[in-house]
Design a protein around this nucleic acid. Structure first.
Lengths: 229, 229
DNA sequence: GCATATTTGTCCGTATGTATA
DNA sequence: CTATACATACGGACAAATATG
């Protein structure tokens, strides 16, 4: 039996409120985004159902949720697998992010002070985490930063879309030698961006963001290529 | 016989294959987007299961698919209903569209001739349909136009997101007295936009698009408000 | 407010089809 | 080619929640 199944079993006690499928999905999502369940892993209905003590029907419902979030892929008559992102997927995700986050930054001209404050707050969250040497928290704060940028759009659907994209990208962070430390260099740039936005210098912010993506995308792709030819 | 022929044959079989849940979802999706199943309608598991001759478990799987597409809403212990969009939903959808389609138009500077041709082709599809007095086809062509705009992004995820947004908006088209004729006035504007893009006048195109959304959003919201107080 | 009927939520057993060693 | 394992789909069961009279 694989290790991660043990981890699942310990979460069994948590299963007791709200829709069962949602709870199961949440448990699996956590395992995936934290890298305990690696891309390519097949999720057996029987094994996981046994570990979490839920029926196959319920489990399939949870699988559906995560498949829709693109964290799992469903292959007909073969089962569900933790998604493996290709280099093309990563390129597409960054192309998408460029479009989305640039649009969000441009929308900053209409942003409320509260929305801009949320951006600054996420920068400070990252700086505090770095000062404390907590790299995991730095990574989380970086996610919050980009989520806060999405908040400038003032569109719930836009924010949902951003959440989705960021969750999907997490699938590939674990190819990095140290998945979380890789966010550290971006603290400085986030601060810059936040300041530019506060000053209303939208065009300059867009420029900074563009550099951000160039570097981050290249860094991820470089880390990926050695994995498979 | 060569091996690759076998390979083709099995792939061919794979292409046409889909789960019953997906086929059921497709049938329901069609009923919803064409207005035969109206927002607010409750979808009884037993009735629909009997009508389509599928088991409750399979049907629920189809419901899940459509719920994730936001065409249905699931109310715990009460069942699933065809989604009813609120005025806020429509406003959010238009805000989202503004961000997305503006971004797509700006990305037109890097578009290939083929991508721009797809935009023009959808305009002509609409013009032909209008000349033939086929308002349903005019509406469809209008969807294709905006989907073609999304294609300028050259991002599959971006195009998916647009598809989703347009599908969702269809839920509300049926509040219009004549759901399809309402697209007609936009033919002219689509042509304008297509021409501006072909000339590379991106900023002007963005401006035209912005007007487009102002008018369309107001028109939809006005048609909605009498429905409910 | 109460009792009843209906419907959903969850789980199980099983038959059939499909993929893979 | 066969055997095994697994996914798909069905129908039945019962508890729990909801709607109805």
């Amino acid at each position: 039996m694989e290790d991660w199944l043990d981890g699942l079993a310990t979460r069994r006690a948590d299963v007791g409120r709200s829709s069962t499928a949602e709870r199961v999905a949440e448990i699996l999502r956590e395992h995936i985004t934290e890298g305990r369940l690696l891309p390519g892993t097949r999720l057996s209905e029987e094994d996981i159902g046994a570990a979490l003590r839920v029926s196959r029907n319920t489990l399939r419902e949870a699988f559906r949720l995560l498949t829709h979030e693109r964290l799992l892929v469903h292959e007909f008559n073969r089962g569900v697998f933790v998604r493996t992102l290709s280099a093309d997927d990563v390129r597409d995700l960054y192309r998408f992010r460029r479009l989305l986050e640039s649009a969000a930054v441009r929308a900053a001209v209409d942003a409320t002070p509260a929305e801009l404050a949320a951006v600054r707050e996420s920068v400070e969250e990252g700086e505090r985490a770095a000062a404390a040497g907590d790299w995991y928290a730095v990574g989380t704060a970086n996610m919050h930063f980009h989520q806060a940028l999405a908040g400038l759009s003032r569109s719930p659907r836009f924010e949902d879309t951003m959440r989705q994209v960021l969750a999907e990208l997490r699938l590939v962070f674990h190819v990095m030698a140290d998945p979380w430390a890789f966010h550290e260099p971006y603290l400085q740039r986030n601060r810059e961006l936040s300041d530019l936005l506060a000053e209303g210098r939208v065009a300059a912010a867009e420029e900074t963001l563009s550099h951000y993506f160039d570097v981050a995308e290249k860094q991820l792709l470089d880390a990926m290529t050695p994995v498979r030819t």
